[in-house]
Amino acid sequence: MKILTTTTAALMLSALALPALAQDPANCGTVRFSDPGWTDITATNGVAAVLLSALGYTPDIATLSVPVGYEALKNGQTDMFLGNWMPAQQSFRDDLDATGGIVELVQNLEGAKFTLAVNKAGADAGVADFADLDAHRDAFDGKIYGIEPGAPANQSIHAMIEADEFGLGDWELVESGEQAMLAQVTRNASVPTVFLAWAPHPMNEAIEITYLSGGDAQFGPDFGGATVHTLARQEWVEACPNAAKLLSQLVFDVPMENVLMGKILDEGMDPQDAATEWMADNPDRLAEWLDGVTTLDGHPGLAAVEAAVGG
């Protein structure tokens, strides 16, 4: 398959920017996407699911690890993915781009960051930089707390340990899911602890976090400064332009995601319930997301979503 060029992608996205003239065909009714188990993507998936449902589509969200999720997108088992964190997932993105079958619909978030951090006890011990860690190995029990196995950030930590960067060759990466990692950090409140931290996330409000400098080579500059992108299969975009148009206009911000993630993590809300509540409180966002978008059967999309969420 021919690799999708920047020009081709631009032409496709410009076509999406045109007013919708007709509904999608019935076989576009189910929209398949994946969730890596990260609360930020669970939150944005919740928003997408509520919007799609209100428009008459059926969202089908599979819980898949990052590597498996990318394989599913590449192999046509899913249609789109809202969680392409860059540059942390550059290798996965390169693999997808090489197939020529994937298009980026939009950068859906800016201002994100993702790198190692320490809790207050770690900062009080004098750790503010990657290079400070090994001098305090015993206080940290030689452990770095990461997220689920296979995640790109964990791979970066593994590579750092294997290369003995910053003298961390005899440290251990403890791999677990996001919530298990944060539960461990919470239990370790009085113990120096180094862990993966990121924004947006309500952990930044609940835990006194010091993001570590010095990790530019491992996580990128500006404390792992990141953007998040929405990817989709080229064939799906061409076959289902109305749904793709919605996704191309679905852009978030850090404060919004912090609120949504707090509802999910701290209040125990279902992601779609949290998204519905947020949209009812912020109806002004709906117009930009739904500009030119119809329901699956061709009726005005904004009115359908407003009726569904109470905006």
Rank of each mutant, 00 (worst) to 15 (best):
D297Q: 02
G292F: 15
D266E: 14
G292C: 03
L290V: 08
G298A: 06
A303T: 08
L296W: 10
L265S: 08
D266C: 02
V293A: 01
L296Y: 09
I264A: 07
P283A: 06
E288C: 01
A303Q: 15
L286D: 03
D291P: 01
D273N: 07
D270H: 11
D297C: 01
E288K: 15
D270R: 06
D281P: 01
E288F: 07
N282R: 08
A275Q: 04
K263E: 14
K263I: 08
H299R: 14
D270C: 09
P300G: 07
P300D: 12
P283S: 09
W289R: 00
L286N: 06
A274V: 08
I264D: 02
W289G: 00
E288Q: 09
G301Y: 11
K263N: 11
E277A: 15
I264M: 07
D273E: 14
R285E: 04
L265M: 12
A275I: 13
T294D: 04
A287I: 05
A274E: 05
D281Y: 03
W278Q: 00
L265A: 09
G262D: 14
E267A: 10
T276W: 10
K263M: 15
G268T: 10
D281L: 10
E277H: 06
A280D: 08
N282K: 09
A280N: 13
L286G: 01
P271F: 14
W278M: 00
M279H: 09
V293C: 01
G292L: 10
A275N: 05
E267K: 06
H299C: 01
A287K: 15
A287N: 13
K263T: 04
A280C: 08
A303Y: 10
E277N: 05
G262R: 13
D281N: 10
D266M: 06
G268W: 12
T294Y: 11
P283R: 07
